[in-house]
Amino acid sequence: MRLIGQIAVNVFKESVRDKVLYNLVAFAVLLIAVSYLLGQLTAGQDMKIIKDLGLAAIASFGRLIAVFIGIGLVWKEVERRSIYSLLSKPIRRHEFVLGKYAGLALTLLVNVLVMTVAFYAILAYLNTLYPESIQVTWPAPATDPGMLRAILLIFVELLLITAVALFFSTFSSPFLSAALTLGLWVIGHFNDDLRSFEAVVESPVAAYFARGLYYVLPNFGAFDIKTQVVYALPVPWLYVVTTMAYGCVYIAMLLTGAVAIFSRRDFK
């Protein structure tokens, strides 16, 4: 564990110095600019839009980092041969893979935390601009803590995307890894449609195939509860916890696969 932690801290340090956290500035500027523009156009209804946009921005910025740093985590080390020196130290290959993953997870955690604080700060400020007569028309208070459930699931989704990117990057090029990860993410958002595929096709083979894919592919749609929290629709904690558990099992399987492939890999 000590070695995994040390590798993770190094990944985090590299990410910070590689200006990955600059995205936070972009996030804050985007949110403030949109809030200002919407404030000019609508009469109090912009709060829902700002919440929706803020949560979408947290997810989108996180996904960019997860995919584009995730695919480079292993590839960059191999391509630049820095892995040669590292693997000659007393570490095992699985410690390398898990350390790399933990480092990016730490980077994402810091990102999501900072974005969340900025998001709530902007919402709290906007709240002061509206009279109570408008605030009572909102489905939920401006700084509704219920949104944290959505953010929690966004974070688990980011961890899952990172695991997918890392898995592909253990055996393919960055371009292919990015394409496969993004492809899987898009398909994973339509996973529910695969389950009900048998209702729209006649071929039992196609229906079984679709059902098989439903079980095998990650269900990214399950992590998206933005609409529910923005409109203050009930999202039980049980749903949040079981979805997180589903994400963790999937991540564990992907990391096991990544370790298995990486442990047998020749560095030519």
């Binding site: 190094n10 340090k13 590299e14 110095r17 590689d18 041969r81 820095s82 040669y84 020196s85």
Partner: peptide, 8 residues
């Protein structure tokens, strides 16, 4: 031809 981490 060793190569290490750019930002360290």
């Amino acid at each position: 031809n060793p190569y290490f981490y750019d930002y360290l």
